[in-house]
Design a protein around this nucleic acid. Structure first.
Lengths: 250, 250
DNA sequence: CGGTCGTTTGATTACGATCAAACGAAGTGG
DNA sequence: CCACTTCGTTTGATCGTAATCAAACGACCG
């Protein structure tokens, strides 16, 4: 086991924000065995159908989960930033029901799934916080179902850009609704169920409407209020304040 | 606390299929305090934004979860049959991020969320099995994201009909790919992100192609192989065999 | 400097939405 | 029991959003 990577501390802080941990719990988390790797952009953490015996913590960079349809279409299911478990779900269910791929070059910590399960079985507070982690993941999935199922193209991409803004900010990677999009328009399209051509047109339109400004991959949401409205965005589903429950009314 | 409803036994059996429980665990689950109610079709278990302090176990009947968009569109996010927790997710996160409504008249057991959390904190095996339950829910959400995001109308409804077939069969409510649809075409439409008019046409077409036969709400999948193909359906995501991991290759 | 990948724009097509209306079944009250 | 209502299903006609096809452009890289 290598020296502890600093992102582990961030992980603990993130988990703690949601459900309190004792000193013992923190120590246990920080002494999980793991295997750190630096991988290139595009590398696969796991592929749909493979047995999953490691659970992957993202130490730096970005990743996404996706599935491929029989017709060959790709649907991106979630995005992940550093200090997030990107493969907890696969690894606990034994066999992967979706693929996980790196968006950028990244460092990952592969933690034996057994070790995580063992920890959860012996440390109730850790079990609880990890459970909440997957509950929040599920909440985001639900919102994505709504996004691709019932919103038009403009709202879909606006919603996604809003989500990025808050999540990246929470991760310390954005401020003032300004951030660097870690992905191509094609990947954006696969996340919202559109074509990249159409996403491009929507981005252009959002720019013309003065909702966003962009320069290459850099995005600035110029009018958060109107953007929220355009994307029918309500951050409650992110549960960034899971401890005190709920956000403000619209 | 009223006499134990028989569905609790079913719940225990269902949870056990996924992760072993001890005798003590079983007893603890079966002695959870609850408040049983019989509610009419259309009754709400909880509404988006409300505080959630009970977690709802469906004792009989059907329920679904949904969200409403700013434009007024409804997206159904999941369906539930008897012996499933229909509101575990809301109740553990404190404030509901979606609504839950009954599809049919039903009996529900309202269990104080505290009691469930307490149980999870003191009984690791129960924490584990409930966690797996929410992991499987999340897996289904992921598949639904793919369904509404990247499949055409025919595949979407075929996929949903396939999912129903297996889930109802697992619940003892279907056999030989024959079952009673517990919902209207409008609700079906809101589950797959289409209009009810279009769902109706797709159902008609699936009938003409000889994939299904229907009479009123009764559905028979006549050609499971072709139906699976039409719906791009792979049951692995349901994790009905969570213990031994994975399904067969296509 | 050529090559690759991603972005941008234009032209056309098609899938599913929308609008509209009739029909059928189940339930209600006179 | 029958008129009447309501809700869901079915069918038809038209419309519009996003897909598809195609091509040029720009940035980054070896």
């Amino acid at each position: 086991m290598p020296d502890l990577h600093p992102t582990f501390e961030k992980l603990v802080r993130r988990l703690e924000r949601r459900s309190p941990l004792g000193e013992e719990d923190r120590r246990a988390l920080l002494s999980l065995p793991y295997n750190a790797k630096r991988l290139a952009a595009g590398a696969h953490i796991i592929r749909d159908g493979d047995p999953a015996d490691n659970c992957c913590l993202l130490l730096s960079g970005f990743a996404y989960r996706y599935k491929i349809t029989g017709e060959g279409g790709r649907q991106i299911i979630s995005f992940h930033v550093a200090a997030e478990f990107v493969d907890l779900q696969n690894s606990l269910l034994g066999i992967a029901d979706h693929s996980v791929q790196l968006l950028t070059e990244a460092e990952v910590a592969l933690i034996p799934a057994n070790a995580v399960q063992e920890l959860a079985l012996t440390r109730p507070a850790i079990a609880r916080t990890l459970w909440i982690d997957t509950l929040i993941d599920a909440s985001i999935f639900r919102e994505w179902v709504v996004n691709v199922g019932r919103r038009d193209s403009r709202a879909r991409v606006a919603h996604l850009l809003c989500e990025f803004s808050l999540r990246l900010e929470a991760a310390g990677l954005a401020s003032n609704h300004h951030y660097e999009l870690p992905m191509t328009q094609e990947q954006l399209a696969d996340a919202v169920g559109l074509t990249s051509v159409h996403v491009n047109r929507v981005l252009k339109q959002l720019g013309e409407e003065g909702l966003i400004r962009r320069d290459r991959r850099s995005i600035t949401i110029e009018d958060w209020g109107r953007m929220r409205q355009a994307g029918d965005f309500n951050e409650r589903y992110l549960h960034h304040d899971a401890m005190n429950g709920g956000g403000e009314p619209a």
